Computed example of a mutant assay.
Amino acid sequence: MSESRLTNQVKVLRFLTGEMTQSELGRKVGVTRQTIAAIEAGKYSPTLETAYRIADVFGKSIEEVFPWER
């Protein structure tokens, strides 16, 4: 069975959005810069609520920001 995993486009989207910092994104969604860094690095999976808030900041669907790789 192949391994599936949750990936993310957070870092790419931050840079495409006027090079938004991790701190700025964290403030907008109510988490710390360290949490954003951990999400980007794939070391932490955000709560569903946080994932939706991040997607909303970028005007994207949750699937666009957090694609599931099979």
Rank of each mutant, 00 (worst) to 15 (best):
V57G: 03
V29M: 06
V12M: 12
L13W: 10
V57K: 02
L48Q: 14
T35F: 13
Y52A: 05
E49W: 01
P67S: 03
E40V: 10
G30K: 11
L6M: 10
G30W: 11
Y44H: 13
S4L: 06
R5D: 05
I39C: 06
E40Y: 08
I62Y: 01
T21Y: 11
P46N: 08
T50F: 01
I62N: 03
R27S: 04
L48W: 10
L13V: 01
R33Y: 02
W68E: 11
I36W: 11
V12S: 12
V12E: 15
T35G: 06
A37I: 04
T7F: 02
A37C: 09
S2K: 14
T32Q: 04
L13S: 08
G42W: 00
W68K: 04
S61M: 03
A38K: 15
T32I: 01
K60D: 05
L6A: 00
I36M: 12
W68Y: 08
T32K: 05
D56H: 11
V29H: 08
T21N: 09
I36H: 13
T50V: 14
F66K: 02
E24Q: 15
L48N: 13
E49N: 08
M1A: 10
G42A: 01
E19H: 14
V10K: 06
E19S: 15
Q22R: 15
T21K: 12
Y44A: 04
F15C: 01
L16P: 00
T7D: 12
L16N: 07
P67E: 04
E69R: 11
V29L: 09
S4G: 07
T7I: 14
A51L: 09
E69Y: 11
W68N: 03
T50C: 09
L13I: 00
G18E: 12
V65L: 13
A38D: 11
K11L: 09
G59S: 08
Q9Y: 07
T7Q: 12
S2I: 15
I54V: 12
G30D: 14
S2R: 13
Q34W: 03
K11Y: 03
E19Q: 15
R70F: 09
P46A: 03
A38F: 02
L16A: 08
L48P: 04
K11F: 02
A51R: 04
L16Q: 11
E24Y: 06
S45Y: 02
G59W: 05
Y44C: 02
K11H: 04
V10L: 12
V65G: 09
V10P: 07
G42I: 00
G26L: 03
N8H: 01
R33E: 06
Q22C: 08
L16R: 10
S2E: 09
T17D: 14
T32E: 06
R70D: 13
G26P: 02
T35H: 15
G18Q: 07
R27H: 01
E19N: 15
E63R: 12
T21L: 14
A55R: 02
F66G: 04
I36E: 09
G30Y: 09
E40T: 10
S23R: 14
R27I: 01
G30H: 07
T17C: 07
K28Y: 03
E24A: 13
E40W: 05
F58V: 05
V31N: 02
E19T: 11
V10G: 06
E24N: 05
S4P: 08
